[in-house]
Design a protein around this nucleic acid. Structure first.
Lengths: 177, 177, 177, 177
DNA sequence: CATGAATGAGAATTCATTCAT
DNA sequence: TATGAATGAATTCTCATTCAT
């Protein structure tokens, strides 16, 4: 049921359409969720729970840079292959729809990502700057690439993707004190 | 009249409130604009026309890196001191509200920014990657910093801002073939 | 539901009143129809589907003139006893509210009336003039009578009705080449 | 000024357009008329004052039937050459926009038409039926013809117009007791 | 006399949510 | 548990009219 909802996307679509597209009656939806906000939060949870797993998939051993690049590509590919998840995460950020409590709930799912960055900083693989900043910049760089592809502004050839990764890495890699 | 509109912001606010907040009657607004989309597009134009000028203000002579940093700070400061403009530009991107024609109209205002990046690439100050990509990454990095500040996630001290700039510069600076 | 709508009439009444008078919420109306035009067209269809049946009711055998008079009276009585249908059909004609497609859809319902006139012409009971003209004149004559009655300009006594019928018949009856 | 207004037509056009089309400022219109109803009534007066004159133009001497036909054609031609006046008179009838007092004021302008019909009845050129009825039927017949032409349903060739006139005449001509 | 920006009540329509079946 | 008709507050937009210049 929820799968359907996500597949179809909630974007800014009215509940009525959402119901029609999911082939469930409106009433049925309100059996499972109390209101629209709850649905959105549930999708939010679904998607963001994924992140923690998705991002850390297929990490190569040892080489920190390669690990960074793999994480980068994992996120990039996730968004490219799940454009609805991308749209949704773009959507959801703009007006603060998601309650702070929900955001808080999700934090544990990022612990491994956070730890990756923390380790990078500690081991002098990454710049010694505020964790939140380095994460945001990295995330933002992936988003930049995805947007260019998504809006059709760039084809994002293999080389262009590699260029974007290179930029990202040089942005955050350790450069000495 | 339009100044008021921008000051107050359009957020996702209903026309009625927008009118009340601007101290003009709804009818008055529709005397000047044909529909909501047109208002939004007009604000879009106002803000984005600024960019070309704002970004290139107080550029230091000669040193490309310093110029880049100045542009970076110009945009950062513009958004920090005009949070409504920031909110608005975040808003406006998400569902494609702005007609392609309007976007096209605005391009000339960025020519000087574009030329700055083009020159940087040609003069081997910047990486030799696709213009659109390098611009988007740079822009995205500023936005990342502004967001952290805007959402109160980071205080963005002078050092943190400088860190962000450093990341940005290292992301795009020339690194040899 | 639709019955209510017709009973109450659409005059030029706002949807809101229409809803209130029908004792349904506005939303409910829009649950069944997409917009005002659609409501009007639906009423149009209801009324005009009646015509084909109403007009040909109780036709006497054989005597063409008597048949003509019966049809005339059928329409006259229909409008007199359904003043809302009359008002509605007066309304609806003036600016072309009804889509051509809907008008086209309704044509089959008039086939028997059309055929009656065609037969009359062929059998030299009616003037040999353009079908559309002879129909319009006959229809117009009924409308003239109904209007006089409706606006209270004439009581339309039995004699006056008969006078009107006589005029109509003489207007269209066969008069030799 | 008023000429312009009529030329452009009032149909159901908003005052704002009416002003724009007349190349007069809205304010100016409200200098001359107190409200929209007054404008419409003024146009109504203009057009209907014409009638009395227009209808009785170029009446042939003596032959009553020829006079009837001339009046018929005068009205028909007036509407065909002044489609806006036709539209207007169709419009104006439907919801009772025009105040009864105004209608009353106009009556004197029809006296000559009324007298023509009265004379016809008295002189046994016309059926001895209620004046209002015979006038309405005659008027209605002209309108029927104009409508067919106006809506493009018939080309209204010379023959078709003559057919319509013949119908009209036979509808009202004296037929003995 | 002429102007047109300003007004705001009211119209059409949307959509999250409820509730009887 | 599932349904979807019903709801009505909220939203966008229209248009007759006013009034300061």
């Amino acid at each position: 049921m929820m799968e359907l909802v996500v597949e179809q996307g909630v974007h800014a679509t009215p509940m009525s359409q959402l119901a029609r597209e999911s082939n469930v009656a409106i009433g049925t939806i309100y059996h499972h969720f109390n209101n629209k906000k709850e649905i959105i939060e549930e999708i939010y949870k679904m998607i963001f729970k994924d992140y923690g797993v998705v991002l850390m998939t297929n990490l190569p051993e040892d080489d920190f840079k390669k690990q960074f690049e793999t994480i980068w590509m994992n996120l990039y590919n996730y968004f490219i292959t799940n454009p609805l998840a991308f749209k949704f995460s773009e959507w959801v950020g703009v007006p603060p729809i998601i309650g702070d409590d929900v955001v808080e709930q999700m934090k544990p799912y990022y612990y491994n990502v956070r730890d990756f960055f923390l380790r990078g900083i500690k081991e002098k693989k990454l710049r010694n700057i505020h964790l939140r900043l380095i994460v945001q910049i990295s995330y933002g760089n992936v988003i930049s690439a995805v947007r260019l592809k998504d809006k059709g502004e760039l084809p994002m050839t293999e080389k262009q993707v590699q260029d974007a990764i290179d930029c990202s890495w040089d942005a955050v890699k350790y450069v000495g004190e």
